[in-house]
Design a protein around this nucleic acid. Sequence first.
DNA 1: TTACAGGTCTTGT
DNA 2: ACAAGACCTGTA
Length: 272
Amino acid sequence: MIISLDHFDLDLIANSGQCFRWKKICDNPVSYEIIHKGHYLKMSQLSSSSTNTKQFELSCDQDTYENIWKNYFDEDTDYVSIEKSIYASNDSHLIECFEKGFGIRILRQDLWEMIVSFLISQNNNIKRISNSIEAICKKAGLPSVENPEAFRFPEPDDVDPDFFNDSSLGLGYRVPYLMEIYRYGKQNPNWLNGLKAMTFDEAYKELLSHLGIGPKVSNCICLFGLHHTQAFPIDTHIKQLLNKYYDGHFDTDRFPDFAGIIQQYLFYYEIS
DNA sequence: TTACAGGTCTTGT
DNA sequence: ACAAGACCTGTA
């Protein structure tokens, strides 16, 4: 099926550091394989017109799109008003980041996958994070609905904690963090729904109480897993850019409720 | 070879 | 409350 999306660019989203499993399968047209909540999707970017809206070809049917992917792409967030706020801010560096990153959009990814992914991400590089996550999914061996060769992300009940005691996964010292969070997830089946019901501040604090989750990872989980777009994760790259352009401090109150989206533009500009 | 990576934990003051 | 120092290991 064919759909139109505005403020949406496959390459930019793939390289914006929020998704670790997108796999590029073609340069022309730009095409990716995406796995989300047990479903597999091939997505191609058809036109790159000068307008804000682009066309995409998706391998799924209408029902699966409505039930799974529509929410994942977060079509409801109003990026036009965000764009207006950015230009109204007179922040020349931010405007430059926005123009270079036009088409970045924060997806609504699976909460459990984000918790585990950002636990792995600490003091780590994106390539190795992706490799570890892929190794975990492959070892768990749970096929997606549409493609038996593409494996879904294992949920708490899918693997024993001891599953992670395996050096071939390349997890290093994070192994006990994963063992503990899988054990906790299995013993507390309502935990994820509870997190989803919380405010940003509540969820942020609750996540902090778990082994291996500090301020940065908790903010990432809130932003990418719970879509609390006011979360503003500060990592080494953001720290460097704040020192370079903002005297070491960024006033998030300038962008109430969507500082996290601003952070994504700044982050992408810095790493690219 | 050395330094770094979307940090956090532990220990010492 | 805050400052070191340790920590796995693939990648550049």
